Amino acid sequence: MVLTMIKPKFAQIKRFIIDKIKSGEWPEHSRIPSENELTVQFSVSRMTARRALTELSDEGILTRSQGLGTFVASFKSQSSLLEIKNIADEVKDRGGLYSCTPIILESIEAIAPIAIALGVEIDSVVYRTVLVHLENEKPIQAEERFVNPELAPEYLQQNFEHITPHEYLCQAAPLTEARHTVEAVIPSADICEWLTLYNEEPCLQVIRRTWSTKGVVSFARLVSPGSKYRLGGHLTFKK
């Protein structure tokens, strides 16, 4: 006898919304059903519908605007004021000694937020790495990266002590576009361990998605201690 696990109602609503987005029926910026509409459609409480929408918003799949409704988030590239730089080059340009410590290299099944970010099917296999970048033997950045194996099939075979993910991906799937979000965060226990932080000092987090001509190549989270890293750029304005 095979027992089938019945998903909670909020999880069923989340899957319904994700399937609509993946199929293209609900494209970017589409308004999705309200809490009240989902309550009626799935015969659930408003709290259950709200939980599904809130979790999908927290995962970056939906965006909510008070008074307007809930919409499918944008997953396309947008222009950025941040220049994509290879961290090894940044360290060397400052006269420092760059090194890298690989923590995790693995294949995993993509959960919904990762699948959508990479443009692949949910539960399909993607690559995940966690690396710590060091300057003069001191950790300055923890990098967690998810990679589309179809565009970089030999990614996990690289020796990241000698080549950075950025360098390899530029060779394997030349990058054409990128999107960044930047925010200050309090580091998780894992980040504190990777960066050897003894106090939960504020950190700078950059979420980065990169594209080649064939699609989304990678989705990365870069976290640096606020006391050890600065983010800068140079703008040139046309006259």
Rank of each mutant, 00 (worst) to 15 (best):
Pro153Trp: 09
Val44Gln: 05
Asp89Trp: 15
Met5Pro: 04
Ile186His: 13
Leu3Thr: 10
Ile140His: 09
Ile61Phe: 07
Ile104Val: 15
Thr101Asp: 09
Ser65Asn: 01
Ile108Thr: 06
Arg221Met: 11
Thr210Glu: 11
Gly69Glu: 00
Leu222Ala: 09
Val182Phe: 10
Pro27Tyr: 08
Ala52His: 12
Phe75Glu: 05
Val216Gly: 04
Ile122Ser: 02
Arg221Glu: 12
Asp93Gln: 13
Val120Leu: 06
Ser77Glu: 15
Gly233Thr: 06
Thr213Val: 12
Tyr229Glu: 06
Ala173Ser: 14
Ser212Tyr: 08
Leu151Gln: 13
Phe10Lys: 14
Glu90His: 01
Val132Ser: 03
Val72Asp: 09
Glu167Lys: 13
Glu144Cys: 01
Leu62Gly: 02
Val72Asn: 09
Ser188Arg: 14
Glu193Lys: 15
Ile108Ser: 03
Ile114Gln: 13
Leu97Trp: 09
Ile13Arg: 15
Ser57Trp: 02
Val185Ala: 01
Phe75His: 13
Arg208Leu: 15
Phe75Leu: 11
Glu106Gln: 11
Thr164Phe: 04
Trp211Arg: 04
Glu90Phe: 05
Tyr98Trp: 15
Arg221His: 12
Lys138Ser: 12
Ile103Arg: 13
Glu37Cys: 05
Phe10Pro: 01
Pro33Cys: 01
Val185Glu: 02
Gly96Met: 02
Arg128Phe: 00
Ile207Arg: 14
Ile21Arg: 10
Ile104Trp: 00
Arg179Phe: 04
Ala88Lys: 15
Leu68Thr: 00
Thr213Tyr: 04
